[in-house]
Write a protein that binds this DNA or RNA. Structure first.
Lengths: 202, 202
DNA sequence: TATGTTAGTAATTAATTACTTACTTAAGGG
DNA sequence: CCCTTAAGTAAGTAATTAATTACTAACATA
């Protein structure tokens, strides 16, 4: 029996808050997620949230840190356990899309935070996330050049940008079609094209 | 002398409203643009806006129609005056980035509208825009296959998705870096990669 | 010039929002 | 077993927002 007590330790409550926000972001505009909506989804009163977070921005910060952690962990694991550069890129691509498929709210949250005009701490976390992601990609791409997998003339910075754009494009397409299955159907075809764009042509 | 009277004909006032919103979206989060802010930027009182638009959503609808018109006009022109498929894609790519550079608010507006949960009329316009854009791209790509410019084995639907993703990726990168110049520096390098992804390898 | 219409103002309204406060309840260690 | 304290409730508050209202100035034209 899961003793569903009302009072939870702070750490646990914080963790639940984060996943609740991500779940809500999968269904509605992140900018329109109110503290009242978060609380209701958790079966809590609105005021209770402010026992654990000093402000709404603090909630967003916690969410971003969780997302960044999840995504970077997958990227790093993909980068580590792969022999070739292509295998590494494929692993990262798959892991990234897998995360997005399980948590459709994540790309929406990231987009929304980047749109904000103010330089919030949460935005800083997103910026750091993308910067680190790019760095990992560039390392892999340069390794691929040395291996002879990739053409020497390609611009690795552009190749990293295209990699991220490829994922974004897939996300946008599924946002438009409203069909999350769209993502899985298209992804392998698009990745094939990406490989063509950087591979060495013998 | 440009008689800067206060009273303007409705059509003119509507047009000014649209460009004002786009200009504001370049500097702040589209979701946080209030009717008061729009009015202030136009040198008008807030209530006056509702003489010309029945609701705020109607303002967004007008903005989307204007954006869609601008973008599709450029796409179609790019498609028309080009001899080869690659030339057409290049023309569209350049025209699209040019529009974004002059009006940085446009991609932000489109992203924001796609994020919204409700199915607003404005969102419908965006959906139609992207659908038509994709259709044009696919036509060009298929023509390219027949020409022998493109490899026969490529998936044109995926190639269209990658084209849009490429632009999105560039926009996102410049959102992150906060540097609009970043876009121009990177764009040609990324487009080179895109060409590699679809061209026939002899 | 008289008259009807369009476009404007200034003030107000109802709803919503993040955040606060005063009080209550449940945990759990000495 | 009690008592401190962390966690939760319920009812606020001040600020902001889209939309409305009653009124006025500018324009068109017969």
């Amino acid at each position: 029996m899961t003793t569903t007590t009302k009072h939870l330790p702070a750490d646990e409550r914080k963790a639940i808050t984060v996943v609740t926000v991500i779940e809500l972001a999968g269904r509605r505009n992140p900018g329109e997620i109110t503290t009242a909506a978060i609380a209701q989804q958790m079966g809590l009163t609105q005021g209770a949230l402010f026992r654990h977070f000093p402000s709404k921005d603090a909630i967003w910060l916690a969410v971003m840190e969780w997302v960044a952690g999840q995504l970077l962990a997958r990227v790093e694991q993909g980068a580590r356990h792969a022999k070739t550069a292509f295998a590494a890129l494929d692993a990262i691509f798959t892991a990234h899309l897998d995360l997005i498929t399980t948590c459709p709210g994540i790309p929406r949250i990231l987009f929304h935070e980047l749109q904000r005009a103010e330089d919030t701490p949460a935005k800083g976390v997103v910026r750091a996330l993308i910067t680190e992601y790019r760095k990992q990609l560039i390392t892999i791409l340069e390794r691929g050049k040395i291996n002879g997998e990739l053409a020497n003339e390609i611009n690795v910075s552009a190749a990293a940008a295209l990699f991220l754009g490829m994922i974004q494009g897939l996300v946008m397409q599924s946002l438009i079609s409203g069909d999350p299955e769209h993502l899985n159907r298209m992804s392998s075809e698009v990745f094939t094209l990406y490989q063509r764009s950087i591979r060495k042509t013998t």
